[in-house]
Simulated scan of single mutants.
Amino acid sequence: MVTGLHGSAGTRITPARWAAVRSAVAEAGERFEQLVLGCDGGVMATADWTVADTAAHVAGIAWNYTSMVVSYDTDRPIGGVRDHLLGTTVDNIHTGLNAALLRNFPEREPARLVATLRASIGKLLELSADADPASTVTWLGGARLPRAGLLAHLTNEMLIHGRDIAVATGRPWRIPEEHAALFFELFIVEIIRNGTGVLLDGGRPRAGRIAVEFRSRYTAPVVIVVTDGEVSVEDPGGPVDARVGFRPAALNLMLFHRVGRVRTALGGGVRVRGRRPWLLPAFLRKVRMP
């Protein structure tokens, strides 16, 4: 099992949050499995991926995480993926890492994919049971991601791609706000706090400082700052350019381009105010998802 490394100063990963994300990844896994088994694997879930491709993407991530959660030096179960790890950015992930994963993990039979996902989640929970949840692993682009963030990312992958499958096949799908909040707090905030590597390189950085405060009823308030293209996290209380009130599920769907910004705002999923809210688009060109 993974043991006793300590996270960076200032981490906010509480025992309650650790317990919550462990429960969330197991629950999301069960729901995703049931969804996949109830669909025709050959139906297109997105413009490029079938239901089976989407399930392979999620199962492959989970399977690789069973080695990543231990150490960067541990062999990956899917060949060719590790070659892309350190050079991955949000702009090249689809043509590089994601394509390599699907190419080198050819299984497309839904029942076998679900079995791989179930076993991988179980192994991931077992290996991390005694870990310090704030201790970090080397993630995409050389970013430093706490182990709690690794579980939050996998949970979000199942929630977002589960929605893709559900929308395409006319099935119901729910993204619990409390689970979406874990992605914001344990992944987005903590990967910025610990170091993003080259993950966010590019993005047309704007000179100067943009500070945006994020608040929701499900998360602790936090300020994310872009300064000359560098991203950092601050506690609330200082001057900010924009204040964003949000529902976590709506924010995640917007960040992953499943729902447009205007529609998200009109639906009340994101509310923006502040002294310079027009700087938010420049901020989001840097703080962005694939």
Rank of each mutant, 00 (worst) to 15 (best):
M1T: 11
G7E: 11
G10F: 03
A16W: 00
W18F: 03
A19Y: 04
R22V: 09
A26I: 03
A28D: 10
G29E: 10
G29L: 05
R31V: 00
Q34C: 03
A45D: 12
D48R: 00
D48E: 15
T50L: 12
T54M: 01
A55Q: 06
H57K: 06
H57P: 10
A59P: 06
N64V: 13
Y65E: 15
R82Y: 05
T95W: 00
R103W: 08
R108I: 13
E109G: 02
T116K: 02
I121P: 00
L127W: 00
D130V: 03
L140T: 11
A143V: 10
L145N: 09
P146H: 03
G149M: 09
L150I: 13
L151M: 14
I160D: 08
H161D: 13
V167T: 15
I175T: 13
H179N: 10
V189N: 10
I191M: 12
I192F: 10
G197L: 03
G208V: 09
R209N: 07
I210Y: 02
A211V: 06
T219D: 14
V222L: 07
V225F: 00
G237S: 08
R247L: 09
N252P: 14
G260I: 07
R263F: 01
L266P: 09
R276H: 13
W278E: 14
P281M: 09
P281G: 08
P281Q: 09
K286T: 15
